[in-house]
Design a protein around this nucleic acid. Structure first.
Length: 395
DNA sequence: TCTGGGGTCCTAGGACCC
DNA sequence: TCTGGGGTCCTAGGACCC
């Protein structure tokens, strides 16, 4: 049995090109907020990368280059990316080749193939790759190996070497050779901090990490690191989080124009609270904890800085928009300080539990039922016409 | 002038209980 | 009041992922 990892190439940019074929062959970047002149590059296709552009650059820093090179700038449409992701998911499940198929993120999937022969693996992986291209016009890299982490290592090579044609099989006998070619910081689970720790202990490649004694890994990276270490050695140890019911739900925004009036922040926070509540109901959950945070622009050393957050516990778990808005605006009251230019704010819901009230709530007062109906109507309208088509006022 | 928006898990430390 | 172990729950913060 092999694990398979599927990773969409330049996903946001690929989605834009898939829905606008005239962009094919052009340099394309996707930014979070082009209209207001702000924003950073979130994704870019190979043609844009070839111009020296990279992910994370603020648009204003490369505006001239983008114009000179006629780069197409798209505004990120996360709804569309989630929809295409689900279409990919459904198509592959229906095809029936990949087992235990799960979505890991908006552009990555994992599964298993009950085969061991490299030629057969390649044959079936190619069928999956081709299906996604035919159905969705998204190019992918596929990696196959003995664990999730090794499958991701294989995908790394599938994407970097043209000869693989998007598919890399990493059997046990090639494992060490591949890991020796991979910088330790490229390993799934090794971030900036841990990379530093490992490098100062003399480990530069993924193979150095795999060959280190377990005790040293525990000391340097703790238990999550041990899972990575096991997986690099071909022993599956990672379990993927279930996406069925999120444990926290967040809505936040970095404002294009800074806000200093309390009313402006209040309106934004009420909007976040309302969308969080809708997402909560969509997954049939209740929350018991509400957090609000605000922050000034940390890049502006000429302005006074302030960042803070506040949390409260609800009297009883709820998914009621007005309850959550009330809690969030009360928290904002305690956070707000006059005289600052606010750049960012957000609402986080946690303490999430399944909403089993639908059966148990037979005796709820009529008012509650009417409120529930009202909110489901608002949810479905927002689903159809976009978020915030209907929002709730503060009362 | 202009710098994203989501999520997960782990650990340490304090409060509280027996 | 002092001494002390052991357990649970909660929270804050840090690390990671895309």
């Amino acid at each position: 049995m092999y694990y398979i990892h599927i990773d969409c190439n330049s996903y946001f940019a690929s989605c834009e090109i898939a829905s606008r074929p005239e962009l094919e062959g052009k340099a394309v970047v996707v930014a979070n907020d082009n209209e207001n002149g702000g924003g950073v590059i979130l994704a870019l296709n190979a043609e844009a990368k070839a111009l020296g552009l990279t992910r994370g650059i603020p648009l204003f820093k490369v505006r001239k280059k983008l114009e000179a090179e006629h780069v197409e700038i798209c505004t990120a449409d996360h709804r569309k990316y989630r929809r295409i992701s689900k279409e990919i998911m459904d198509g592959v499940v229906e095809q029936g080749i990949v087992q235990d198929f799960v979505q890991y993120s908006v552009d990555e999937f994992f599964g298993t193939l009950p085969l061991d022969d490299p030629d057969e693996l390649r044959f079936y992986a190619a069928k999956v790759r081709d299906l996604i291209w035919e159905n969705n016009h998204i190019a992918v890299g596929c990696g196959l190996s003995q664990s999730y982490t090794l499958a991701k290592v294989a995908t790394h090579f599938a994407k970097r070497h043209k000869g693989y044609d998007g598919i890399c099989i990493l059997p046990p006998e090639k494992r060490e050779k591949a890991l020796a070619l991979l910088a330790v910081g490229e390993v799934w689970g090794v971030g900036r901090q841990n990379r530093k720790h490992l490098e100062s202990a003399g480990m530069r490649t993924a193979l150095d990490l795999a060959k280190a004694p377990e005790a040293q890994i525990v000391k340097l990276l703790n238990t999550a690191g041990v899972h990575t270490w096991l997986e690099l050695n071909g022993k599956p140890a990672v379990t993927l989080a279930s996406h069925e019911r999120q444990k926290s739900i967040m809505q936040s925004h970095t404002f294009a124009v800074m806000i200093n009036e309390k009313e402006g922040l209040e309106e934004a926070v009420a909007g976040f609270a309302s969308r969080c509540a809708a997402a909560l109901r969509h997954q049939e959950s209740l929350c018991s904890v509400v957090t609000v945070f605000v922050a000034t622009n940390r890049y502006r050393d000429d302005l006074a800085q302030y960042r803070n957050k506040a949390t409260c516990k609800l009297e009883k778990p709820s998914s009621d928009t007005s309850v959550i808005i009330k809690a969030a605006t009360a928290l904002l009251d305690t956070l707000y300080r006059q005289g600052y230019m606010y750049k960012q704010a957000g609402v986080v819901l946690s303490g999430i539990e399944p909403d089993e009230g639908h059966q148990l709530d037979l005796f709820s007062v009529e008012n509650d039922e009417r409120r529930q109906r009202l909110m489901s109507v608002a949810d479905s309208i927002n689903h159809k016409f976009g978020p915030d088509s209907i929002t709730f006022g503060k009362h």
